[in-house]
Simulated assay, not measured.
Amino acid sequence: MKNLVIALVQMESKVGKIDKNLFKIKKHIDTAALNQVDIICFPELSVTGYSPENSQEYAEMVPGYSSKILSQWAQDKQITILAGICEKNQSLNPYITQVICMTDGNVFKYRKTHLAPHEVAFFSPGNDLPVFDIPQVRFGIEICWELHFPQITTFLSLQGAELIFCPYASARTPKDRQQSWHIFLPARAYDNRIFIASCNTIGQDFGGGLMVCDPEGHIVVEDHQGKESMIIANLDSSIIESIRNPNNQSLFQSYYPKFLRNELF
């Protein structure tokens, strides 16, 4: 991992109002680019809006209309963009997908594998937990409900992920969201010696929230004011390198038993 700058956005996305949502997303991307951000992450289903009951109506293909626009912005601004799209799935229920638009024009996607109980009737689960690479970092994605399963974070860490983005569409008040994240996000970061970066939707019942934790479990920055905003965080690679460097035997042996070291390194 190298030092990098990330941005997280909490925003309101209107269901089915794709062009309006994209316009709002573009404004944040422009601001992030001015601040030399390397990666920007938007909430779950930020492009198409979150409404399980109407998911078939506003689902779209990936690659498709929105992902092509996002990809062009990623290339123009030289910033990696992570945004949520309801992905069409032929005759089956759509996926909750986070698209990853790289600066070289490549577009990847992560499909939510663990659906919340109220989502099961309306969406199809993904079946893969990939990691993605840019020059500065290897990262993974967990979407909302998936953070309730600590094994996912561990699996991604074992694949070499140094940073995990956690886009949410969680109907909690700002206070409830903050209290909940304070319990398990630092734990996920500390137990797996990994950076965690989380952002939530705002509007209707969604209370928003932004938080970044470092591999020591410390909260680097957070925003729980319940208003649309973006935070920018500088991630110091030395924190994770000092832990994951095999030459640092005391830390390395303490946090990664032999069978895990063989898998990870």
Rank of each mutant, 00 (worst) to 15 (best):
G49N: 03
C213P: 12
E60R: 07
H114Y: 09
I79D: 04
R172N: 09
H118I: 11
N35V: 00
Q204F: 13
Q136D: 02
L82Q: 03
Q10M: 01
L158Y: 12
N106F: 05
D104K: 05
L185E: 08
A187V: 13
P257G: 05
F155G: 03
N106V: 11
H118C: 06
K175R: 12
K258N: 06
F184T: 02
I141A: 05
C41H: 02
I202C: 07
T80L: 11
A83N: 08
K17C: 07
S124K: 05
N262Q: 13
V137M: 08
I69H: 05
N93T: 12
L45W: 00
L264E: 03
V5E: 11
N54A: 07
D191W: 03
K227E: 14
F122M: 03
V5N: 15
K68V: 09
L260E: 06
S55E: 00
E119H: 15
T201M: 13
E241D: 15
E146G: 07
I219C: 07
S71G: 15
D236L: 09
N247L: 10
F23E: 14
P52K: 12
E44N: 10
I202L: 15
F108K: 11
V62S: 03
V5A: 06
T31L: 14
I152D: 00
T48M: 01
P52A: 06
C213S: 14
H118P: 00
H28W: 09
W181C: 05
V9L: 04
M230I: 14
M61E: 14
D76W: 14
A32T: 07
Q178P: 02
G208F: 03
E146D: 00
F252S: 01
C144L: 04
L264N: 01
E263H: 09
Y190A: 15
P215A: 03
L92T: 10
V5D: 09
I152V: 10
D104G: 04
A233R: 04
A187Y: 11
D176S: 10
K68H: 12
R188K: 11
A121T: 10
V9W: 02
S242G: 04
A233L: 06
C199M: 13
A33H: 11
L260P: 02
E216Q: 12
D223G: 00
E53F: 05
K112Q: 15
P257N: 04
S238Q: 06
R172P: 00
